[in-house]
Design a protein around this nucleic acid. Structure first.
Length: 713
RNA sequence: GCGCGGUUAGCUCAGUGGUAGAGCGUUUCAUUGACAUUGAAAAGGUCAGAAGUUCGAUCCUUCUACCGCGCACCA
């Protein structure tokens, strides 16, 4: 083989490039070179002289994945997006920080460790709080870093010297400080309220931590006998068992059907309690019979109306999801559904069921365990939201913080404008303990992640990092945590630092299966990005993700895009190989030169003709247009479009047209153009496909910089 | 119930007020020196449906249908 190639061998080339691009041989090696270089750390980057001091840093804090997690497609897409921004800005001369880290993820992690223990038939209560927490820390040390290593496999240029964890000592300090500052302002208070209680996790949850699941159920119409007169008032309910805790019947004051009943009393069946019929405007006349049973202890609306009318509260369901003593002898101790059956039997016996109809409704479930939510009164910590919500609304209304795409602002505003005080205490063990004496509760995990952009940089201390890298520029995430996380970061940042935590919020699309269904591990519809990397390489995987990331729409995942990425990587590789290994002058000594020359015109052998110069000019123009376009598209967060532009140019303009026609030429000009274009192309492509382009750069005979990573954009 | 997004080639998706585009797939042809992970070409679309604005609508407006999602006080 070598013999055949002898005449083409170029002495100046340090080594031969393989015929095809082989990511496995390249990616880990290149990543190690980058890491060793120290350039992921902005302290080691030369400050750009051309850029003014106040904008010279560019920071993204990574949305900290849960320590329970392993990388899924959403993480991979988000990481690719952030790495593109970071790498481009680094090449543009900014002191670029991409700060990595993980979230302790209170309930999620506690549940995982509890499950582990259950295999050995041990509960957390068997161990006790202290021992259990030791176990969680052990678990975190063992598995918590997996996802960070997966980021490395993707090629993420994160500053590993600044890894943070939401339970680090410094971070705990930040959380305590935040709590105390809110407390001193009088915004944190303790109160007994009806909250969302997860029976399985044994903790309260905020309104945002609920999901809704459709349930096929019945709507039962139950007769409540009027007191001291004949007749009934009929109420419709999906939860007959809660009648044991009823303290009134409510109707709309405008409802003619019930006008003459308002103020009268009924005898609550089974409990034989006298309860009033009251009027409240919040009652929907259209629904059911227009008359509602009120159970102030176990329903949020009922609780509100109950408070208004000063109704007594009967706690008939206990925290374990079993009927409490107040439910009465008949049902106390039963599970909720057992109680429901018992109540139904009893009501049938008393002939108090008017009818039942099929009814589908949504029931609230826990976002961590899918368990049943039982609203119930509980003593909890709440954070007043009025002022904070105002801050957050103003920041976006004024344009200080921008959403991309903009329409996600609606979701943000609609939540903040109708906000209720935030229940921030959780009755679990894994988390930040509430400061103050005698507290056993911990804080909502989102309370601490709300501080992420500044707590990771050293707040509340006045650190050099905080000064240099805060406010950050961009936060990139999926839509499901706009309010859970993004909104809370915005008001926390404004409240504690007086500055917005970031300027731009990128909401990328969700990756779905090809049929448009949710990717989920348990359904077996998920795809492991690590398998894609193994099969096609990290650059091809990134290509596949970004190729499909058009207009922030949801992505119907198609693995063909990754295959296209692998082919493209090879194409780019071979463009480089052609330019670096087979100089046009040498090729042209070959006798085929005549026929090649014919492809591009009459007069293009030997010296460049006029038309060849025109061709160069035209090509250079297209190159410059592409440069501008790609740069603009990345700056406006149109990542998919940017990659398509690049792909088109590289493959169809550079390779198919210019390189093909260059084969018939033997002038200095064409060599210069080819070499320059190659350098420009790998620069532009570097943020998207960093390993491939860096490997090519490392093979350039004369490079300006140690790494393409720090080349000038 | 309110709101948001989508509907363009067989599949996944771009796009524009004036002959409709890409990747993959399909068909035909080509090719010993960058690359078969290739090149040249072809077939394939009433741009969901209807009405309106306009000289002209796939694009703007309204309505309808279907799909997806969010929110709600889903008794």
């Amino acid at each position: 083989m070598l013999k055949n190639k002898k005449s083409f061998k170029i002495i100046s080339m340090p080594k031969e490039l393989s015929k095809t691009y082989n990511p496995k041989e390249v990616e880990d090696k290149i990543y190690q070179l980058w890491e060793k270089s120290g350039y992921f750390n902005p302290d080691n980057l030369p400050a750009a002289s051309s850029i003014k001091q106040q904008v010279s840093s560019y920071t993204i804090v990574v949305p900290p994945p849960n320590v329970t997690g392993s990388l899924h497609m959403g993480h991979a897409l988000n990481a690719a997006i952030q790495d593109i921004l970071i790498r481009k800005k680094r090449m543009e001369g900014y002191k670029t920080l991409w700060l990595p880290g993980t979230d302790h993820a209170g309930i999620a992690t506690q549940n995982v460790v509890e499950k582990e223990l259950k295999k050995q038939n041990v509960s957390r209560h068997d161990l006790g709080r202290e021992k259990f927490l030791e176990k969680v820390w052990e678990w975190k040390e063992k598995y918590g870093g997996i996802i960070l290593n997966q980021f490395k496999k993707l090629g993420c240029s994160m500053d590993w010297s600044r890894v943070r964890f939401t339970m680090d000592e410094q971070y705990q300090k930040a959380v305590n400080e935040a709590f105390l500052r809110y407390y001193k302002k009088g915004w944190l208070y303790k109160a007994e309220r009806v909250i969302n209680w997860c029976v399985r996790c044994q903790t309260s949850l905020s309104d945002l931590e609920l999901e809704y699941k459709e349930e096929r159920s019945k709507l039962w119409h139950i007769k409540y006998p009027l007191l001291n007169e004949k007749g009934f008032i009929i109420v419709a309910t999906t939860r007959p068992e809660t009648m044991l805790g009823d303290s009134a019947i409510a109707v709309n004051p405008k409802d003619k059907r019930y006008k003459n009943l308002i103020g009268k009393k009924v005898l609550l069946p089974i409990q034989n309690r006298e309860i009033p019929i009251i009027a409240d405007e919040e009652i929907d006349m259209e629904f059911g019979t227009g008359a509602v049973k009120l159970t102030p202890a176990h329903d949020l609306l009922d609780a509100r109306i109950g408070e208004k009318h000063k109704l007594p509260v009967y706690k008939v369901i206990g925290p374990l999801g079993k009927m409490a003593p107040e439910a009465g002898q008949l049902c106390a101790g039963l599970k909720v559904l057992e109680c429901r059956e018992k109540v139904m039997v009893e009501l049938k016996n008393q002939n108090l069921i008017e009818k039942e109809e099929d009814y589908n409704h949504n029931v609230a479930v826990c976002y961590r365990c899918n368990g049943v939510i039982e609203p119930q009164p509980s003593l909890q910590w709440f954070l007043k939201m009025n002022e904070l919500a105002k801050l957050a609304i103003k920041a976006v209304k004024s344009g200080e913080v921008k959403f991309h795409p903009k329409n996600w602002e609606k979701i943000y505003f609609s939540w903040l404008e109708n906000i209720r005080d935030w229940n921030v205490s959780r009755q679990i063990w894994w988390g930040h303990k509430i400061p103050l004496e005698g507290e056993t509760d911990v804080l909502d995990t989102w309370f601490s992640s709300a501080l992420w952009p500044f707590a990771t940089l050293g707040w509340p201390d006045k650190t050099k990092d905080l000064k240099e890298f805060y406010p950050t520029q961009v936060i990139s995430t999926a839509r499901d945590i706009i309010n859970l996380w993004v909104a809370r970061m915005i008001f926390s940042g404004l409240e504690f630092t007086g500055q917005k935590p970031f300027s731009d919020v990128i909401i990328h699309g969700t990756i779905l299966t090809k049929d448009g269904k949710r990717m989920s591990k348990s359904l077996g519809t998920g795809i492991d990005p690590m398998i894609l990397i193994e099969k096609y390489g990290a650059d091809a995987t990134r290509f596949g993700l970004i190729w499909q990331a058009m207009g922030n729409q949801d992505i119907h995942w198609d693995e063909n895009a990754v295959i296209a990425g692998k082919k493209f990587a090879n194409k780019v590789w071979n463009v480089a190989r052609f330019i670096l290994m087979n100089k046009p002058s040498q090729i042209n000594t070959d006798s085929n030169a005549d026929t090649r020359g014919k492809n591009i015109g009459e007069n293009q052998r030997g010296n460049p003709s006029k038309s060849a110069f025109d061709e160069d000019k035209e090509f250079i123009k297209k190159l410059n247009t592409t440069k501008k376009q790609v740069s603009k598209q990345v700056d406006t967060y149109e990542f998919g479009q940017a990659l398509h532009s690049l792909y088109d140019f590289v493959w169809h303009e550079f390779a198919d047209k210019y390189i093909e026609s260059s084969k018939g030429r033997n002038d200095e000009e064409v060599k210069i153009v080819l070499n320059n274009a190659l350098l420009e192309v790998i620069k532009m492509l570097h943020p998207f496909m960093p390993h491939l382009t860096e490997e090519i750069y490392q093979n350039l005979p004369n490079k300006n910089k140690e790494f393409l990573m720090i080349e000038k954009w």
